[in-house]
């Protein structure tokens, strides 16, 4: 078997190396992906989309962060399904791991506490206090990352992961139970669906104004006091879908951790 793997790896590697031969220069501003494919005679075959993305994004969407505009508007359909992928991953973990019942027949995950810490539980105090201080800051930062996705690097996926991590930190520092008190299973499974509903719902809302799915410009009727209603509608809708993404990612991050760390019983974590 090792030989087969070796042959497969060698073949793939040499195939990739073979392809490198005709690559454009590293960082070449005239490469096909940057400026559009050209023939050897110098004739331009077509314009590259990336150029239009760079020059026209602010014009059309009033969003300074081009990456977010590509992600949430031009290719918002892709991003919606990426969120669905996250959602499906959480559901898959739930479907495979989650066990219902008292779970008394399975041995506990946590090793029996040894009595190294005799007087009080100093480690607990230090960790507990640090987490108490840190978690609100982490969550605030997560909200900042989500809300500023269309101005600066960030967005729903990143912010959602940070938000989910704050709950995971709580579960690690104290125990899964106290984390679940804050964020119960019913809540996170619902929140995951709500996230998708926000994203797809915004898209369908555009269809009610006789535009295509996810054509945020349709929502300009809600931008009453703006000079550029259509562009602002795009900008705010991007924030809207980012919030939807963040909901799903937060919920699923914690759901995956909770199910994995407790063997699907959601009783006692690591």
């Amino acid at each position: 078997m090792k030989w087969i793997a070796l042959i497969a790896v060698t073949l793939t590697g040499s195939l990739l190396l073979f392809g490198v031969g005709d690559f454009p220069e590293w960082g070449d501003p005239h490469s096909p992906a940057n400026q559009g494919p050209k023939l050897k005679s110098g004739e331009q075959v077509s314009k590259a989309v990336s150029q239009d993305f760079l020059t026209e994004t602010y014009e059309v969407t009033k969003v300074p962060n081009v990456v977010t505009a590509v992600l949430a508007d031009y290719r918002g359909y892709d991003t919606m399904f990426e969120t669905v992928v996250v959602f499906a991953a959480g559901l898959a973990i739930f479907a495979i791991l989650r066990v219902f019942g008292d779970g008394s027949d399975t041995p506990p995950m946590r090793a029996v506490e040894d009595d190294t810490f005799v007087e009080g539980d100093h480690s607990r105090i230090i960790i507990g206090t640090t987490c108490k201080l840190l978690i609100p800051i982490i969550q605030l930062f997560a909200l900042y990352v989500i809300a500023h996705g269309h101005y600066s690097p960030g967005g729903g996926f990143q912010g959602g992961v940070i938000m989910g991590a704050s709950f995971i930190l709580l579960a690690i520092a104290r125990d899964l139970k106290s984390a679940l008190d804050w964020f119960s299973e019913k809540n996170f499974m619902t929140l995951a669906s709500v996230g998708i509903l926000i994203y797809a719902g915004l898209g369908v809302l555009c269809q009610f104004f006789e535009r295509n799915f996810l054509d945020y410009g349709a929502l300009k009727v809600f931008m009453i006091s703006s000079d550029h209603p259509e562009q602002m509608a795009r900008s705010y809708s991007m924030l809207g879908v980012e919030i939807g993404v963040a909901f799903t990612v937060t919920a699923i991050m914690f759901a995956i951790y909770a199910n994995l760390s407790s063997r699907g019983e959601l009783k006692e974590g690591l």
């Binding site: 059309v60 918002g76 359909y77 996810l214 410009g217 259509e230």
Partner: peptide, 13 residues
């Protein structure tokens, strides 16, 4: 999807 139909005009600022 999103109304990004090639050749059509998108309203800019």
């Amino acid at each position: 999807v999103g109304g990004w139909e090639p050749g059509k005009m998108a309203p800019g600022i």
